[in-house]
Design a protein around this nucleic acid. Structure first.
Length: 569
RNA sequence: GCGCCCGUAGCUCAGUUGGAUAGAGUGCUUGACUACGAAUCAAGAGGUCGGGAGUUCGAAUCUCUCCGGGCGCACCA
């Protein structure tokens, strides 16, 4: 649709003496396809041109008609409604999808930029709950979206691998744990020990002192403490990586908080040199009152650094060492103020690139309306959610398609697809209340629906191939040979690039999820409305090519969301 | 108290950045498989876009105000 809009904008801009960009951004889609395929409301030009909108619309329509570029141009009130040469446009859109789906989605606007995306970032020795799915899958999808639009992407897992909690882990392990049990199920066992620590500490507060002492030893490089700490990390990572593999998630770097331990002094020194550091209530802070924010604490009153210091060091590392031009943080909305402070301090440190730092916030995951809290042991394990969803998928396959090959692999793809899609389809910022019924629902606006539609298209194409029919390059049909449902599908496919742009600009995978659903709906409607294999000649060739284009767009859209697209299910 | 986010159908949510008659899914009622896959499609009922005021040709969208919910507001991350 991009080409068509360019042509329209250019013609109208020339005639009216406006900027092409201004016309372009005014173009929209009519509410009813009977009105046309593109619409240009002329109200906003009235003031500048000092003419009534109707006259402007008439003038613009005249220019469009003369050009002969469109099938039909009508004026309705202050609107110009344009009907495209549908046969030609359809062939072009389908051809594009078949040659290179990526090209249908993206104009690669950001080549030459490198984005460091910080996502997932679970805490070591704590369970991977459903809540972590948000950062993980939103982050993963954003990585793919940015790469699609030309960015070079670096995915970073900023593991929570440092802090006083490790003193607690060590104490609890030495008192109540054993190597064998930890090895068997590291995360669950370490977490069990951690929860027990908190329970026992209520009765025996001296445990807290012991934990602090052990963390101090860790900071001082004590051999025993370091050994245990490293062991906890490697065991936890094994478990996390298993989950990441199931989800199809991968990182370029695992750079945990501890990685920046030796990089924070430089930050503090620079802040001091620049005169940004102030004493306040015994702590060293950057005063941000001029920006209507509380001070950013750099050093606590006991001299220790804090997470803002660490995030500053991490940002500098990502920019200076990793060469990132854009820093993306996929972290919960509750940390909004923290990131606003960190970005502001970077700016005050003279880092102009601070304006390319983005906190991609998302709402909280709740369960029965309550906040999930690992500390209080309130967790829904992600592995359990995935397992139940996969079981559900397997049961449905047994019922509907017992002869399917590769049942296990497909059940895995569909079950996990349901969970992931459910998390990506809505506005990031909404809090979500986790409900089993939502996750285990495979009908309607769901991942399995999208996967099913894809498999259905594949199925038609398989049959076509078996009959020796080609789905390659579509013929150009006469406009009136195109059924309404066919055109609506083409029109939907053609909007892929604007969806990608909106998704990238807003760091919002849900735009793609919605688009995938819209394509599915349009395809299924077309599928019911028009026989594909039962048609003949050019019409059949066209419909097969359209089916093939749809299949490609769906597979790619699902990829951008991090879902698999099985060819049968 | 201050700041940010959210409020649209019974429920979960879209709404192309101020445009035409506010749309999906789900649930409910109903129709379509001897049919290229029914994990599908179609039809119906269901709305004071939280309330009120303002801005203008035009507001779910922008401004103000009130109500309701969430999150944050210095030594946890």
């Amino acid at each position: 649709m991009y080409e068509q809009k360019l042509v329209l904008a250019g013609l109208v801009a020339d005639r009216l003496g406006l900027e092409s960009e201004a016309v372009w951004s005014a173009i929209e889609y009519p509410p009813d396809p009977k009105l046309g395929d593109l619409a240009l409301p002329c109200f906003r030009f009235a003031k500048a041109l000092r003419k009534p909108p109707q006259a402007i619309a008439a003038d613009a329509a005249e220019a469009l008609r003369c050009s002969g570029a469109f099938a039909n141009v009508e004026v309705a009130g202050g609107y110009v409604n344009v009907t495209l040469r549908r046969g030609a446009v359809a062939a072009e859109v389908i051809g594009q999808a078949q040659r290179d789906v990526t090209g249908l989605f993206s104009r690669r606007r950001h080549t030459g930029r490198r984005a460091a995306v910080d996502y997932s970032s679970p805490n070591i020795a704590k369970p991977f709950g459903v809540g972590h799915l948000r950062s993980t899958m939103i982050g993963q999808s954003i990585c793919r979206l940015l790469a699609e639009d030309g960015y070079e992407v670096i995915g970073i897992n900023h593991l929570g691998d440092w802090g006083t909690q490790f003193g607690k882990n060590i104490v609890a392990y030495l008192k109540w744990g054993d190597e064998e049990t930890v090895r068997r199920d590291p995360v669950k066992e370490l977490f069990r020990l951690y929860v027990r620590f908190h329970e026992e500490a209520k009765e025996h507060p001296e445990l807290e002192d012991e934990a602090r002492a052990w963390f101090k030893r860790l900071e001082d490089g004590d051999e025993e403490a370091t050994r245990l700490w490293k062991w906890f990390i490697s065991e936890s990572l094994k478990a996390f990586e298993q989950t990441y593999r199931r989800l199809g998630v991968r990182f370029d770097h695992y750079l945990g908080e501890s990685f920046y331990n030796d990089k924070m002094d430089a930050v503090v020194d620079e802040l001091r040199q620049r005169g940004l550091l102030a004493q306040s209530e015994g702590a060293e802070v950057v005063d941000l009152s001029a920006y209507n924010m509380p001070p950013c604490i750099i050093r606590k009153s006991d001299g220790a650094t804090i997470y803002a210091t660490r995030d500053l060091a991490a940002a500098l590392y990502r920019h200076d060492v990793l060469g990132a031009t854009d820093l993306i943080y996929v972290v919960g909305a509750e940390q909004k103020l923290h990131f606003a402070q960190v970005f502001k301090v970077l700016e005050l440190m003279g880092r102009g690139w601070a304006r390319h730092c983005h906190h991609v916030a998302f709402g909280m995951m709740k369960y029965n309306g309550e906040r999930l809290s690992t500390r209080r042991g309130k967790v829904v394990y992600l592995e359990e959610v995935l397992e139940r969803a996969v079981e559900e998928a397997r049961a449905i396959i047994e019922e509907k398609n017992p002869g399917l090959e590769d049942k296990d692999r497909v059940a895995e793809a569909v079950g996990i697809g349901a969970v992931v899609f459910n998390d990506l389809k809505n506005n990031r910022l909404h809090d979500v209340d986790f409900r089993w019924e939502d996750v285990l629902n495979f009908d309607g606006e769901t991942g399995p629906y999208a996967q099913y539609t894809h498999a259905r298209a594949c199925s038609v194409l398989r049959r076509a191939e078996a009959e020796g029919l080609s789905a390659a390059a579509p013929p150009v049909l006469a406009d009136d040979l195109l059924a309404q449902s066919e055109w609506l599908l083409v029109h939907q496919l053609a909007q892929s690039n604007e969806c990608l742009e909106r998704a990238v600009d807003g760091f919002d995978p849900s735009v793609i999820a919605r688009h995938v659903l819209d394509v599915c709906h349009a395809f299924n409607r077309f599928y019911h409305d028009a026989p594909i294999l039962g048609a003949e000649g050019d019409v059949r060739r066209f419909r097969l090519a359209l089916t093939d284009a749809t299949r490609r767009v769906l597979a790619h859209g699902l990829y951008l969301l991090g879902l698999e697209a099985p060819e049968a299910m």
